[in-house]
């Protein structure tokens, strides 16, 4: 299990992570943290100190919109979802990542995949 990444490396991926998570459904911040950790099998310890400013920044940039509504547990939570602009951005980022990944695979070989 990978336990630590270079900080700079991870920081550059926060935006992509958020856009990807929200492509499927609207989520609130805590939920996103849990989900990212679960999906990466604990590899990504996304920091709260990084996530909240990033969410607010993307909301300002018009990529996300936020609304308060009740969670499954019946408590009010601030749900973030993609705007149309966010959707386009998510798609574009996904394509970029895929092309980077295949290029990296080619360079690193199977061991790096």
């Amino acid at each position: 299990m990978v336990t630590a990444y270079d900080r700079e490396f991870l920081t550059g991926t926060v935006g992509v992570l958020i856009l990807s998570l929200l492509t499927e459904r609207a989520m609130y911040a805590y939920e996103m943290l849990q989900e990212a950790e679960r999906r990466s099998a604990g590899a990504f310890h996304l920091k709260e100190g990084t996530l909240y400013p990033a969410l607010h920044h993307m909301e300002r940039a018009g990529l996300l919109k936020a609304a308060w509504r009740e969670s499954d547990a019946g408590r009010p939570r601030k749900y973030y979802s993609l705007t149309a602009k966010g959707r386009r951005q998510a798609e574009s980022k996904r394509r970029q990542w895929k092309s980077i990944l295949s290029a990296m695979r080619a360079i690193l070989g199977d061991a790096g995949a």
Binding site: H45, K47, E48, G49, T50, Y52, P53, H56, H57, R60
Partner: peptide, 16 residues
């Protein structure tokens, strides 16, 4: 996990 409150506050300030 939040880290130093100053750090997140500074980042939020930048956003707002």
């Amino acid at each position: 996990r939040f880290g130093a409150e100053g750090r997140i506050a500074a980042s939020l300030r930048d956003v707002h």
